[in-house]
Amino acid sequence: MFKTSILSCATAALAAFAGPLFASENGERITITGEAIDTWCYYSGVMGGPDAVVGAAHHTCALWCSAGGIPVGLLADDGTVYMVLKIEDDDHSNGGDTQMTIASHVITADGMLYKRDGINYLVVSKIIADLGITNLNHEDYGPVPSFAIPAPKP
């Protein structure tokens, strides 16, 4: 009985760890709609809550972070973030022009999703629609961070 228990335990442990150890790198095809966000400000909370670091309020900072090489994510309505590794033929995910042009925009993208260790990685094969900036939260939050827009000179 002891041997059986040990064997069962080993099997259970193997099953539990099989995911991370032998994670399939096979992607799944998805179509996703979400806002192109700056993932550092969103996840770190460095500039406030998640509602403040998206949309028009945070657009200038999203440009800075995209140009600065912070990974761009697509934030879907259900709160899932998809890290964008490539957009169509452009794999310049470290501060590339294509990612900058969609900063804060809501886009619908067709692509391949790869899940690995709790992170969703997205390889966009085609941007189907670009709805522009739809979250007008600047009216509530003002610029985030506050210095994003220089005060007009008197």
Binding site: P20, W64, P71
Partner: peptide, 18 residues
């Protein structure tokens, strides 16, 4: 064997880790 994704370097000013 966990793949960790760095988002940020050590500088304060909007800069990534790649």
């Amino acid at each position: 064997n966990v793949m960790v994704l760095p988002l940020k370097n050590s500088q304060a000013a909007f800069t990534g880790a790649a």
